[in-house]
Design a protein around this nucleic acid. Sequence first.
RNA 1: AACAGCAGUUGUUCCGUCGCUGCUCCCGCAAGGGAGGAGAGGAAAGUCCGGGCAACACAGAGCACCGUGCUUCUUAACAGGAAGGGGCUCGCAAGGGUCACGGCAAGUGCCACAGAAAAGAUACCGCCUGCUUCGGCAGGUAAGGGUGAAAACGCGAGGUAAGAGCUCACGACGCCGUCAGUGAUGCCGGCGAUGGUAAACCCCACGGGUUGAAAAACCAAAUAAACCGAGGCUUGAGGGUUGCUCGCCCAACUCGGAGGGUAGGUCGAUUGAGACGGCCGGCGACGGUCGUCCUAGAUAAAUGACGGAACUGGCGCAAACCAGACAGAACCCGGCUUACAGACUGCUGUUUUUU
RNA 2: GGCCUCGUAGCUCAAUUGAAUAGAGCAUUUGACUACGGAUCAAAAGGUUGCAGGUUUGAAUCCCGCCGGGGUCA
Length: 136
Amino acid sequence: MPQENANNQRLTFSKRERICSRLQIENLLQKKQSIFCYPFKCYYDFTPKTEERAVNQILVSVPKRNFKHAVERNRIKRLTREAYRLQHRRHLDPKTDEKNLCADIFLFYVGKEILPYNLIENKIIEVLSRLCKQLL
RNA sequence: AACAGCAGUUGUUCCGUCGCUGCUCCCGCAAGGGAGGAGAGGAAAGUCCGGGCAACACAGAGCACCGUGCUUCUUAACAGGAAGGGGCUCGCAAGGGUCACGGCAAGUGCCACAGAAAAGAUACCGCCUGCUUCGGCAGGUAAGGGUGAAAACGCGAGGUAAGAGCUCACGACGCCGUCAGUGAUGCCGGCGAUGGUAAACCCCACGGGUUGAAAAACCAAAUAAACCGAGGCUUGAGGGUUGCUCGCCCAACUCGGAGGGUAGGUCGAUUGAGACGGCCGGCGACGGUCGUCCUAGAUAAAUGACGGAACUGGCGCAAACCAGACAGAACCCGGCUUACAGACUGCUGUUUUUU
RNA sequence: GGCCUCGUAGCUCAAUUGAAUAGAGCAUUUGACUACGGAUCAAAAGGUUGCAGGUUUGAAUCCCGCCGGGGUCA
């Protein structure tokens, strides 16, 4: 099984890397720190690493207003998560490890139509690199 | 063979790499890791009905409200389904389609405009009889005209001054009786009433307690106030006891406990009115019995991404290119409704060709 | 996931006990008034009553099925 990753890490995206707490979401939205990169609006926050939390966490949301069918919303969320899974080891984790922080990221899909996977992947890379600039 | 209708089945497949969520086994103190195997639908949708399950309420009965409405059967139950009856309708016929299909002969209401009159009848024109000052007046009548969506059962004959269910035959309708049928109902006989409207109020029959998994149950941080137990030593401060001080008590304060149950977690929650197959009963829906199988269980919510190949379609030979329906479980079932490219099967009808 | 409500001119609302031309204000257009504009006056246009069926002589209204919007349950 060839491991192509430079850090020799598996490209995982398990439940620990997701935001599941309602309180966490509300805190995140109250900070009102956001960047915009079509088709994503991204709320974010950085907290110091603790024993309980040592990884970056992410949440994807697609409004029902723009996509009426559950099939479409599921597809966007899956594409977004897949792009994050493949890219966050390279573009986000080294920077946060350097600062000993971990990030909460709320990705809000504000586009009106479903984009193909390679476009979404490029946009996710852009979002992650801009987040890294916010760190500096 | 083509086309059309109806009914039913199916609704892309395979390989590689990287992932996600449960389950089983193994390693590990743990975090986690490894292996194996599983992982969206016929509608998962709409939430339109009916249940299971749960909490609360409840002696019994009635009223109100809501729903259903030909009959019999089916079922856990239903506004579903099956078979049958009746009306309407398509058709030469065979046969098919469709129906909120109990009751306006229990009561009340409504029926605009037009029209004499829209329902206890009435009388504009007309018809007939009588009177007449020849202008009409009085009476009878509802056959005809006209109005309207609808006109006092329809139509023919008798009858009459003219007429009239006034009488009779046939026909539409209700009730009763005989016969057939489990029954709706049908045949025959007798009696009887007559506008429509109950998706108008209402009457009759039957059914419905309310609220829904954000239900319910269990574990249980932090914090506030109240309670219980122990302490409450020195100094200072509050209240009571006392004229005052000391003392004592309360209380502040400290520690512990129990209680309720918020954040959070567990459960509910996936073995069930289960699926598949055989046999038996039934016209059928469906039921009985035997055997085999275990077939998603997430919880801010898994079932995905990329690449390759095949298949189908755009398209008439090939290649290239493009596309692959409707749509995503949220406690679980039975139905209904709505969406749906294509493929396949069966039956029926029409047309053409061949024998 | 469950439940409740509402869809009428471009906008805000009537008509809702079925009754025949669906009405009012603002906005739009035209004309008058004015040197011009505003205000005012007069007139016009604008509606598949969300869509599709049914009941009825007749439906915005009654019934049924869809579609869309809003609200509510921690």
